[in-house]
Each structure stands twice: as structure tokens, then as C-alpha cells.
């Protein structure tokens, strides 16, 4: 399938020039290049501007609650491992409201991909501080400037030995599409934290600001994603230079395989066995 065949007719509600457009192009390109058909996908998204993305491509979609993407995505994957499950949300969705689920998902290592549109601000609620807003940033909710350090999701993921940790940039679509492809192919939990300019509310981390700073790991500088210490160091690099690319990759067994009771038939395709129920009942006699 060509990327444009993933286009949807649903009218797009993003601001003109939003970084989400670049992410949408990258998602379409990645699916297209992997040869995944829309009916094989299962997107799960939360609430915010980012989670609208799946409406703007053709795919299966569960657009649930703010912050609750990951448990839904894991449930869908457990029920039917044949689905290509991609969870999608913003930094507020994933790192504030859903942070506990994020921690648990990193540990569980289910075979799903998690795309976080990280614009360091709350967009849909019109410009409040997000967990990834930089120190000192002035927003509507913190007019005195942010006084807490930003949440560093990739560094946390590496600390918890996540399966696959990458950082992408919405302004570099081919590179981002490559990261998303690798994330989908990775057997286990794959995080892609995507630096995304917000044209309406984040006047600090603009497209121009990013373009001057990002550089590609593996191309502009050699990097071994299996080197955990180095990966952690790179995940914390922020300021004049910001690395994008695959930061870390581990060999952890995905949860879906480690779970013994699953057997080979997807849960969704199983039927109860009356003999088992009779046997369980007899134990109370």
C-alpha cells in the first residue's frame, strides 16, 4: 500500500502548521513500508490533540480516555496477538495522567508500540504546563515559570530496561518513519518519544529551535543502542544538542511470549470447554 492510501476522509481538527502533521506522514510511511494493511492495525489513543491522529488515517481504532491508552492497548494485544497494536498520545496523556500505566508498561514489555507526541505543553486545554515543559517556561498555569525539572521519559525507560527506546523529531519525517518501523518490528514494548513543535502554545521549543539542535545518532555521531550506560547518557543530553534516533534496545523477552497460559490460539478466538467447567465444579464436592 502507498502511504496516501492510509489517508482518511475525517476532517482534520489540528492547527495549521502543527507538528502532528509530520507525525501523521511518518506513521503512514512506516506502515506502508512495513506492508501492514489498515485492517491489521489496532491504534489505541487517549485524549488531546495527538490522540486524534488515528482518526486521520485508516486503521482500527479505540480512542479511549485521557491517560489510559496503555492498559487498553495491552488488553487488545493480549486478546489478539495478531494485531499490530500502536498506542498513541501526548506528553500530558502519557507522562502525567497515565504515568503509572507508563511505568507498568515499561516493566510488562508487551509487544506494542507507543508513540508519544511530546510538545512540552498542554495543547487542547490551551497552554498549561506539561510534565516535559522546561524549567523556567512561563505558561498559563505557571505564570511564575516552571519550577520542577522536566520528566525525561526516555531516560526513565532506559533505567527500567525497556525493550526499545527512541527519540524522534516531527520535523524529520523520513527519519521518524524509520524509527516507527523499527519500533513496530521490535518484539516487546517500544517507546518513540517524538519532539513536536506546538505552533499555538509553545513559543520556546519551536521548529526552528529544534532544527538548530537535533542531530541523528548513528549518522552524525556513532551510537551503540545496546550500550545502556551510553544510552542513558544520550537520553539526558538536552540543550544545545539534542540526539534523535534509537537510544536503547534490550533483549528482554516480550510479555506475550513469557505468559505461559496464552497457548497458541488468541484469547479472542477461544471458546469455553464444558469439560473443564465440570471438572472445576467437581472439586467443590
Amino acid at each position: 500500500m502507498k502511504p496516501q492510501e492510509f489517508n482518511s476522509t475525517d476532517p482534520i481538527a489540528w492547527c495549521p502548521g502543527c507538528g502532528n502533521f509530520g507525525i501523521r506522514e511518518a506513521v503512514k510511511l512506516a506502515l506502508s513500508e512495513l506492508g501492514i494493511a489498515p485492517w491489521q492495525t489496532c491504534f489505541v489513543s487517549g485524549i488531546g490533540q495527538a490522540p486524534k491522529l488515528p482518526h486521520y488515517i485508516t486503521c482500527n481504532l479505540f480512542n479511549g480516555l485521557h491517560g489510559r491508552t496503555l492498559p487498553v492497548a495491552i488488553g487488545a494485544k493480549l486478546a489478539n496477538p495478531e494485531l499490530v497494536v500502536i498506542a498513541e498520545g501526548g506528553d500530558g496523556d502519557g507522562y502525567a495522567e497515565g504515568a503509572n500505566h507508563f511505568l507498568a508498561a515499561l516493566r510488562r514489555n508487551a509487544d506494542i508500540t507507543y508513540l508519544v507526541h511530546d510538545n512540552q505543553i498542554y495543547g487542547l486545554t490551551k497552554g498549561q504546563t506539561s510534565p516535559t515543559s522546561e524549567m523556567g517556561m512561563v505558561t498559563r498555569s505557571t505564570p511564575w515559570g516552571v519550577i520542577m525539572p522536566a520528566f525525561n521519559a526516555p531516560a526513565l525507560a532506559i533505567a527500567l530496561d525497556a525493550g526499545f527506546v527512541a527519540r524522534g523529531f516531527a520535523g524529520n519525517v523520513p527519519h521518524l518513519a524509520g524509527l516507527i518501523q523499527q519500533a513496530i518490528r521490535h518484539p516487546g514494548f517500544a517507546l518513540v518519544d517524538i519532539l513536536q513543535p506546538c505552533v499555538s502554545f509553545n513559543k520556546v521549543n519551536t521548529a526552528k529551535w529544534y532544527r538548530h539542535r537535533v542531530y541523528e545518532l548513528g549518522k552524525d555521531e556513532p551510537h551503540d543502542p545496546t550500550d545502556r550506560r551510553r544510552a542513558f547518557f544520550k537520553a539526558r543530553e538536552w540543550g544545545d544538542r539534542i540526539p534523535i534516533g534509537v537510544l536503547y534496545r534490550s533483549e528482554r523477552r516480550p510479555y506475550d511470549i513469557a505468559r505461559a497460559t496464552h497457548g497458541t490460539t488468541p484469547l479472542a478466538a477461544r471458546e469455553p470447554d464444558p469439560a473443564v467447567i465440570t471438572r472445576l465444579t467437581e472439586r467443590f464436592r
Binding site: 479505540f62 495491552i74 507498568a104 467447567i277
Partner: peptide, 28 residues
């Protein structure tokens, strides 16, 4: 194991119902 079901201890009750909904959405 005997009944062929997945029983998942999760991080909180919010995850519990959302995981159940994800599985139900997928047909289980």
C-alpha cells in the same frame, strides 16, 4: 492455565477496567 484464560494483575483499578475494555474491544 486449565481454563485457558489470561489473568492479569495490573498496576491499579483504572488499568484493570481499561485493560478489560481493550481485550473486549479485540473480541475476548
Amino acid at each position: 492455565a486449565e481454563a485457558g484464560i489470561a489473568v492479569e494483575l495490573v498496576e491499579d483499578e483504572i488499568a484493570a477496567i481499561n485493560m478489560a475494555l481493550g481485550a473486549a474491544f479485540a473480541g475476548a
